[in-house]
């Protein structure tokens, strides 16, 4: 009875609504069964080669066999534990962040932002202390996606904050330099910045030096995203009431002191959702590194589908990659939305 009332109100309020509802239900009825059959019922999940796929449905064997490559790229099999270890440390420290007292929270925060990056790079790259060296050109898969997005955001955050402060500065040289820098990177597509990293950076470096491609890409992405972070942070700085600046000045604080102790702590808290959104955009942009020859998840799928033993399975590969990206982006966007709502009510 309740359901009938509810549907009368929300689905069949008038003849237009009813028509719309019936059309949508019909479309579902037509499209869902074949789709479900393809994904689940007729699909083959386990096996070793393309020959195991007999049904008319999807051949998930492809994903199953290649999953290690999709996750870790061409990283040597016997060294994969290093990546896993780094990520386990990362997730344990992030997870415990929500359950401990504020004093330990500070320690964890410092560990994550200052110590962990070096530890992770050491674990991934190796080369000393008994760890075998793994060159960056075999890095790939989802691991590389996460590596590039996390490291770029760590590097571009301080630059972005400085640029945002510079843009609001009273000193004309600093102000116009910041504006020029921000608008330059915001005005061009990432792909041209990556091209720049690939072909232009080597020209500018002293002859003989050979900067690793991955480092060049991270520099390029950092320059590019710092402009976006700067705009987000500027929004936060603008939202701080004038009185806060005046109050800080009136008790004798200078520019840096007032910003570090009064303005930035408040402004950065407001911009957390904006930064999260920038991070999602950055995460979604990482597949672009394909154009300079680095293979993250999408790149690996692209490579696997051209393997002679696995031809014709592009759809499965892309659907799988889309699913992975969707899970990451969707959960992050929901989290940032939750933060936004929380901030709205507390402010």
């Amino acid at each position: 009875m309740k359901f009938i009332n509810w549907s009368k109100q929300n689905l069949f309020a008038n003849w237009k609504d009813s028509l719309l509802t019936i059309t949508i239900l019909y479309l579902f009825y037509v499209s869902m069964p074949p789709l479900l059959n393809w994904v689940f019922l007729d699909a083959t999940f386990f096996g070793d080669s393309k020959k195991d796929c007999t049904g008319d449905g999807a051949c998930w064997v492809f994903v199953n066999v290649w999953i290690k490559r999709f996750t870790y790229g061409m990283y040597p099999n016997d060294q994969i534990w290093r990546i896993n270890l780094a990520f386990v440390i990362f997730f344990i420290s992030i997870g415990s962040y929500f359950f401990v007292s504020s004093k330990i929270k500070k320690c964890i925060f410092i560990f994550l932002t200052v110590i962990f990056p070096f530890l992770a790079i050491f674990l991934f790259h190796g080369g000393s202390l008994g760890l075998e060296e793994v060159e960056t050109r075999v890095w790939g898969g989802l691991f590389l996606t996460l590596f590039i997005s996390v490291f770029s955001i760590i590097f571009c955050f301080p630059i972005g904050v400085l640029l945002a402060m510079g843009r609001r500065s009273n000193l004309p040289v600093i102000k116009y330099f910041s504006i020029g820098f921000i608008e330059l990177w915001r005005g061009v597509p990432l792909i041209t910045v990556l091209f720049m990293a690939a072909v232009m950076f080597p020209v500018f470096l002293p002859s003989g030096t050979n900067l690793d491609k991955l480092i060049r890409v991270i520099i390029a992405i950092t320059l590019f995203e710092s402009a976006y972070i700067a705009e987000v942070v500027r929004g936060g700085l603008q939202a701080i009431p004038r009185g806060q600046y005046d109050a800080a000045n009136s008790i004798g604080m200078g520019y840096w002191k007032s910003h570090l102790l009064i303005i930035l702590p408040q402004a950065l808290k407001i911009v957390i959702p904006g930064v999260a959104n920038t991070f999602i955009a950055l995460f979604k942009d990482t597949p672009l590194i394909l154009v300079v020859g680095l293979m993250e998840l999408l790149g690996m799928v692209n490579m696997a589908k051209t393997n002679p033993a696995w031809l014709g399975l592009a759809t499965e590969g892309y659907v799988f990659a889309a699913f992975v990206y969707f899970i990451f982006c969707f959960s992050m966007s929901r989290y940032s939305l939750g933060l936004e709502n929380k901030l709205k009510t507390t402010n």
């Binding site: 689905l11 309020a13 609504d17 979604k284 942009d285 990482t286 672009l288 990659a321």
Partner: peptide
Amino acid sequence: TNILASKVAEAYIEIFRNIPLLL
């Protein structure tokens, strides 16, 4: 006001927004 239509639109937005354009 039709909940079904609004949910379908929401699903459309979430799906196509959260998958990288290149993919």
